[in-house]
Design a binder for these strands. Structure first.
Lengths: 207, 207
DNA sequence: CGCTCGGTAGACCGATCAGTCTAGTGAGGG
DNA sequence: CCCTCACTAGACTGATCGGTCTACCGAGCG
């Protein structure tokens, strides 16, 4: 019962080969594309190519699978963000790395029907004080606090600016999902960059 | 077959007394609080105090009820917006009237568990190209174009600014719903007001 | 009076849901 | 060799889903 998990280089059970990994990948695709409540267990196991009992050996219920989905999506985003922030070499670019992480996420899910932020969509299906909704709330708070942290690096730690950028990014993601146009995030990136540049005028430096 | 509808002072069938009105009101409460897919027909008719057959005499399917819900919510928002814009006496305040309409909506649904924009939440449950999702897309486009129209009144018609304000508002609404704090919309209103004021500096005129 | 008609109450239908259970298979290790 | 164990395939259960159907009620009206 000590059950040594295999040596893990990534998050436990995210490997594409394992039952758990395939279930999470399948759930991720279907939950994102169709919504959680509209996706049956049978569809998940068919997509994963896994027996029903294997699902219930791995997750105790659909609810637990749903929680794992939310957690996994949060961590995937963090991974994208870390990769982007590592490439940025000034605080300004590190703020924009947050936007870039969303852009990466969008371009990744675009081909299969872009529907905006999977976590926000999931939250829309959770009741008002539920654990899932709280998890999404914390994710969005973390996004804002990452922005605030990078702003603090610039010396001008303005919490209002962090909130402004977080709202801007969040709204752009929603609208991009509705329009099916991930490129709306580029508009948001441009607007954010404009707010970060020291020059108060000198706008309209159209690319 | 000419079927004269009764004289209507408001949208047809929105009267609180009629079967259709009670069904829409009940669906509105339940769909908003629990989500659409998670709300069964039986719950709707129980909440409305109406027989099941009456629902199917009024709407041909749950899908049609859902469409009516989306339309009604859109028109309710428009009504709040019109009332607010009528009180505003300069273009700047008319832009902010769009924010105020969301604030009114938020304070209206607060007591029963505020969960953000009902239309955006509904869209999260609709598949990628569905009519319902398109309706929400058009609603959000209209919000942005209302902002753009009021900006145009000021002479400085800046489409980027309209988009920026629309994103800001949308993101604030989502975050306010996640946090259960409608007052976050007041932050967005303050930020928007700051962007509308002619002074490029002179921020931090805290209320 | 008797007929129509909008409405109610609730049984009923087939489909689908989440979840359980049984039987069987195949690889790995003693 | 056989035993174990993770896994598969799929039947099965009870609940719930959206939707239909029947029976009944009562107000309005000719």
């Amino acid at each position: 019962m000590t059950g040594g998990t295999p040596p893990e280089t990534e998050a436990p059970g995210t490997e594409a080969s394992s039952v758990r990994g395939r279930l999470l990948a399948a759930a991720s695709r279907l939950f994102y594309a169709r919504g959680i409540n509209a996706t049956g267990i049978d569809a998940v196991i068919a997509e994963a190519g896994v027996a029903k009992q294997s699902l219930y050996n791995t997750f105790s219920s659909k609810d637990e699978l749903t929680r794992a989905y939310v957690t996994a999506r949060h961590e995937e985003w963090l991974e994208l963000y870390r990769a982007r922030v590592a490439q940025a070499d000034c605080p300004r670019d590190r703020v924009l790395a947050v936007v870039d992480a969303y852009l990466d996420h969008a371009s990744g899910t675009y081909e299969h029907g872009f529907r905006g932020c999977g976590l926000l969509n999931a939250a829309a299906e959770f009741p008002a004080g539920s654990p899932g909704r709280e998890a999404v709330r914390r994710h969005k708070e973390q996004v804002q606090s990452l922005i605030a942290g990078h702003l603090a690096e610039t010396g001008s730690a303005d919490p209002e600016l962090a909130e402004h950028l977080a709202f801007l990014l969040e709204g752009a993601m929603s609208r991009a999902g509705l329009e099916g146009r991930p490129d709306l995030l580029l508009s948001a990136r441009r607007l954010a960059a404009g707010m970060l540049d020291p020059r108060p005028d000198a706008r309209r430096d159209a690319r």
